[in-house]
C-alpha cells in the first residue's frame, strides 16, 4: 500500500463508490452508483458514450465532487479531506486521460518526470534515468526531447500511459486509452496496460473502453453503465443472464456465447 494509505476499515477495497450521484445542469449524469475496486484487479467500465463513464472516473479521482453518495479511497472519504490530504491521496493514483492531457509547454521527458518531481524527494539524476527507462520500454526513447505537438496520437497515448504509471501507483484509471487509434495501435496500448499492471502486482485499475475484444485480455470483471446507473456487474460468464442491452454490448450471439 502507498503512503496515502490511512487507517480505517475499507473491506479490502482500495477504492469504493457508495451510492454515487453527480448532476449537471441537464440533470443527473450518475445515479446511485456502487463500485468497489480491490488490489490487483482490473475492472472494465463499459457502456455507450455519454452515459457517465468519464464522469465516474473523475469522481473516483476526486476531480469532481459528487452530489450524492461518496467516494472512499484507501479508507478515506474524499469529500472530507483537506486539499493537502487529497493531494497526498492522489499520489497513489495514476490517471490516463481520454484526450492525452499532456502538458503542451513541456517536453515528453518533462511530462513524464513531472509527477516524480512533484513528490519533491526524488534525486534529479534518478528521475532522468527512470524517465528514459520507462520511455524506452514503450518505444519512445528517441522522443524525450520532443513536445506533445510533435507526436502522433498513439505516441501521445503512450506518453500519457508512462506519465500515469511512472510513480507505480496503487490505482490507475484509464479513460478510453484506445480512443481514436487504429486497431494495431489499440492492441499495443492494451498490451502496454497489461505490462504496466504486471509490473506492480498489487495495483488495481479501472479501464474505460468500448473495445470489448481487447478488454477481454486484461479485465476479469466488468461494470456497465447505462444513463448513469450500473446495469451490470460481473465477469464474462455472467453476461448470458444479463439484460439484452448488456449482452448486445458484449456482442453475445443468440446461443449465449461470446463472439
Amino acid at each position: 500500500m502507498s503512503a496515502a494509505a490511512a487507517p480505517g476499515a475499507h473491506d479490502g477495497a482500495v477504492l469504493r463508490a457508495e451510492g454515487l450521484g453527480k448532476r449537471f445542469a441537464g440533470g443527473w449524469v450518475l445515479e446511485g452508483v456502487d463500485l468497489a475496486l480491490h488490489p490487483g484487479e482490473i475492472v472494465g467500465l463499459v457502456g455507450q458514450g455519454g452515459h457517465g463513464k468519464s464522469v465516474l472516473l473523475k469522481c473516483l479521482a476526486g476531480l469532481l465532487a459528487p452530489d450524492a453518495g461518496r467516494v472512499v479511497a484507501f479508507g478515506e472519504d474524499l469529500a472530507t479531506l483537506s486539499s493537502v490530504r487529497l493531494a497526498k491521496v492522489r499520489e497513489a493514483y495514476g490517471y490516463v486521460f481520454q484526450n492525452y492531457a499532456l502538458f503542451d509547454f513541456m517536453t515528453v521527458a518533462d511530462n513524464v518526470a513531472f509527477p516524480l518531481r512533484q513528490r519533491g524527494d526524488a534525486d534529479e539524476r534518478a528521475v532522468k534515468a527512470l524517465v528514459r527507462e520507462r520511455l524506452a520500454e514503450v518505444g519512445l526513447a528517441a522522443a524525450v526531447g520532443l513536445y506533445p505537438r510533435e507526436l502522433s496520437g498513439g505516441m501521445k497515448k503512450r506518453v500519457g500511459l508512462v506519465r500515469a504509471t511512472v510513480t507505480d501507483p496503487d490505482v490507475i484509471l484509464y479513460d478510453d486509452p484506445s480512443a481514436g487509434l487504429d486497431p494495431v495501435t489499440s492492441s499495443k496500448i492494451f498490451e502496454l496496460i497489461a505490462r504496466m499492471q504486471e509490473r506492480r502486482a498489487g495495483s488495481a485499475a479501472i479501464v474505460v473502453s468500448h473495445d470489448i475484444d481487447r478488454m477481454r485480455a486484461i479485465c476479469a470483471r466488468y461494470v456497465m453503465l447505462e444513463r448513469g446507473r450500473v446495469v451490470f456487474e460481473g465477469g464474462e460468464e455472467d453476461v448470458a443472464g444479463a439484460p439484452r442491452a448488456v449482452s448486445d454490448f458484449f456482442d453475445l450471439d443468440g446461443a449465449g456465447v461470446l463472439a
Binding site: K58, A61, L63, S83, A87, K88, R90, E91, Y93, G94, Y95, F97, Q98, N99, Y100, A101, L102, F103, D104, F114, P115, Q118, R119, R163, A164
Partner: peptide, 14 residues
C-alpha cells in the same frame, strides 16, 4: 478543456 488542469491536480500540482 484539454484536461491539462485535471492532469496537474492528478500530479499533485496545485
Amino acid at each position: 478543456v484539454t484536461e491539462q488542469v485535471d492532469a496537474l491536480r492528478m500530479c499533485n500540482a496545485d
